[in-house]
């Protein structure tokens, strides 16, 4: 069962007494070859888990950085199938780092949930975050993923009260993703003081590790979040490095991985892992 990779990674980090650094990159951004180089370089640069976006034409919860990343990836020919190919290529050299695919419902629906789940598991995917599939609509997708040992990672948000939280975490595995801000990715900033009590609530409701994302751009903020959560997720800030590198004609892979290193270092040195 592939969920084992997520559980093993969080157990190892707990033993180390630190939070995870989760790097989000978009499959095929800026092109397939560069995206694969970035992907393969992430674990050595310090990513404990990887969220790999699969591009969608209409990403309604993304801010401009990830919207544009998806458009670049689609323009470069990336597809959902192509995303699984990237995972397969990554798994040739890394069997330990969990990979969570993150995206929207329609490409999975069109593929067919059962067929997709089987192919994703075979490629080496560990879990899915599907932004526009709330618990109310999750049953068919969750069932297909479950049969293939994949986690459907649930999202909790600042609008989730205790009753809602119970609905969100019912039957979930792997970890819970706490969306730190009301808003789209990469715009507002997450505030550690607001996040801490929410993380505690989600952890209590789910009994699972809690990763925090949306609104973490700098090593300082990543460290602050890593003191109160089980994982800090950075996406838009990494995606922005691709654009920045291109503007000054720098090596894209090196620039993204260097950003990952600084963020991962900050998370590691935050030194406070799971403060249960």
């Amino acid at each position: 069962m592939t969920t084992a990779r997520i559980d093993a990674r969080f157990a190892a980090l707990k033993a180390e007494g630190r939070a995870a650094f989760v790097a989000y990159v978009m499959a095929g951004d800026p092109d397939r070859e560069t995206a694969l180089k970035i992907l393969k370089g992430l674990p050595a640069a310090g990513a404990d888990l990887i969220e790999l976006g699969f591009p969608f034409s209409d990403p309604m919860a993304e801010g401009p950085p990830i919207q544009r990343a998806a458009q670049r990836a689609l323009a470069a020919g990336m597809t959902t199938r192509g995303t699984l190919d990237l995972v397969r290529a990554f798994r040739e050299s890394d069997q330990a780092t969990p990979i969570i695919l993150m995206g929207y419902t329609n490409p999975l629906f069109v593929w067919g949930y059962e067929a997709f789940a089987r192919d994703a598991a075979a490629a080496g995917v560990d879990g899915l975050i599907v932004v526009d599939t709330p618990p109310e609509e999750a049953a068919p997708l969750a069932a297909a993923l479950d049969v293939n040992g994949l986690s459907l990672i649930r999202l909790a948000t600042p609008t989730s009260d205790d009753r809602r939280l119970a609905t969100i975490v019912r039957g979930t595995t792997g970890f819970v993703y706490y969306v730190a801000v009301t808003g789209v990715t990469g715009v507002k900033e997450a505030v550690a003081d607001d996040v801490a009590p929410a993380v505690a609530r989600v952890r209590k409701a789910s009994g699972l590790p809690v990763a925090v994302g949306f609104g973490i751009r700098t090593p300082e903020r990543a460290a602050a979040i890593a003191r109160v959560a089980d994982a800090a997720v950075v996406g838009s800030a990494l995606v922005d490095e691709i654009v920045a590198a291109k503007v000054v004609n720098e090596d894209v892979t090196a620039r993204v991985l260097s950003k990952v290193e600084s963020l991962a270092k900050a998370v590691r040195s935050a030194r406070l892992g799971r403060a249960v």
Binding site: V131, D132, P134, E137, L155, P158, T159, S160, V179, T182
Partner: peptide, 20 residues
């Protein structure tokens, strides 16, 4: 009550919006 017309309809929204 779930907003379905046969297979169509539903509430495919980000969790932040679900309570609203």
């Amino acid at each position: 009550p779930e907003g379905r017309f046969g297979d169509f309809g539903g509430r495919y929204v980000p969790e932040t919006l679900m309570p609203l």
